[in-house]
Design a protein around this nucleic acid. Sequence first.
DNA 1: GCCGTTTTCGGCCCGACTGTTTTCAGTCG
Length: 569
Amino acid sequence: MTNVEISKVLEEIGTMLELKGENPFKVRAYERAARELETQNESVEDLVADGRLEELPGIGKALVEKITELVTTGRLKYYEDLRATIPEGLFEMLHIPGFGPKKVNAVFSKMGISSLEELEGAAKEGRLSSLEGFGKKTEAKVLEGLESMKQRVGLRRLGEVLPVAEEIVAALARCAAVNRVCYAGSLRRMKEVVKDIDILASSDEPETVMDLFVGLPVVSQVVAKGSTKSSVLLNLGIACDLRVVPEESFAAAMQYFTGSKDHNVHLRGLAKDLGYKVNEYGVFRGEERIPCATEEEIYELLGLQYIPPEMREDTGEIHLAAAGTIPRLIEATDLVGMLHCHTRWSDGRNSVEELARAVQERGYQYLAICDHSQSSYIANGLTVERLQQQWKEIDDVNRNFRGFHILKGIESDIRSDGSLDYPEEILEQLDLVVGSVHQSLNMPAEQMTSRLVTALSNPHLHILGHPTMRLLLEREPSAFDMEAVIEAAALYGKILELNANYYRLDLNWLHCKLAKSRGVKMAINTDAHDLEGLDHIRYGIGTARRGWLTKEDVVNCLGLDDLRALVGR
DNA sequence: GCCGTTTTCGGCCCGACTGTTTTCAGTCG
């Protein structure tokens, strides 16, 4: 059993105890233990075998017993008994904004409501507001929350889906009957959320390929199986289609199934004017097939430059391609610096040194450590004193590196009045200041706009972090005047973040385009809290490419000296 | 639940906001 699996069980016990209205400190004990095991470098199984589990902070007698039972038998009676008393619907209710364990517990124990459907019924009939502590506003918020949850059904974040799609493609590619194979659709265009996976393969033996596909371990249910198209449901909870085409149709099919629909409509119109017909089977002049082995050849035939998939949204890319002015979009290898990462000093999982090694191994030249500032109490934000201790550690670690440098940064809270979270004499000693909003996310739009503009006008701020504060499929962006914020960034020469965490992707691709058009520079930041988080940079790159960004638009493509010059430090 | 004792029970992590109250509970970060 992996540490993460064990940790998940403890985490869930914590949630269930919370739903049952147990002592909050007991709940926290389980949550703390879950975090401890998750971030533990050593295998918990080994610790159990060696009898060293109790040495871990936050793990006492009761938890040792439970964890031991779990890793030795693979089961935990306490967990299973608890689980049996809590309907699944209660967990789902926790995802309604403003609905926490107490409210869920109240509707369950006092009204017997145990599913989202029952909750919706009660809210619509106005019965919910009769409950003590519930009013009309709560009732309306529940309905609103349920509605937005319905819209999210069947959608998954890019970062959840892409690795699975790659796994499927890799499995198919190993099959001798497969000629070419690739994922297409919105996933290939790197959309931030997708509703399904489209995979395309070419083969002379489609049945063999289909048999392999429907039998993959990631498949939970076969919806349809034929020789040209099969549809399955994945364990991930979304659909996946595989289309198998003859080799000569592969390029046209890739172009067709990558979309977007608007892009293809525009393209087909253009083709028609030139006397061609483009469809999923190929490019034709009358009945005659024009051989095209690659997408590049198709675009060339139509008098166009190749258009990268991320740009295919019919927002002007076809005109650029016709004029031969498609920009060279940013690529992962253009980035030389990693900005905005967290360490154990606040709520990250790794030490300064571990993080720096990992960043260097990934080919970067510098790293800015930007832990949370003092107001972020929950995230273990740094007091001035602890910040200065961290500087000392960074100085020490820097001595162990050649050709790589760690910058002293901070992710400073932007307080409600737009001010930063440290006195000036501290801010001016930092190499890089990222300012982010973490509290009061729902203030009126005008107030939020002036809060952000005030922050941007602060000479000590360099980068505005995750500007909209959205969490994909979870939390809507904060309301404010984005144009005004971008104008302020332009006016004060400040950098906007493109946060690459796949829950955020904030700014989004349209905002990136807007920022670029105003001459505002961007920083693509992982906001990594662990080593795996460093690899999420690819989602930021995808979003940047959707926003037509080039390496000239992105400050962490600059060498260290140029970056320092840009931020004046 | 854990922890640290002033050894066997009391404290444990804060602050803002919202909606429900009429002085506070629940949620969220």
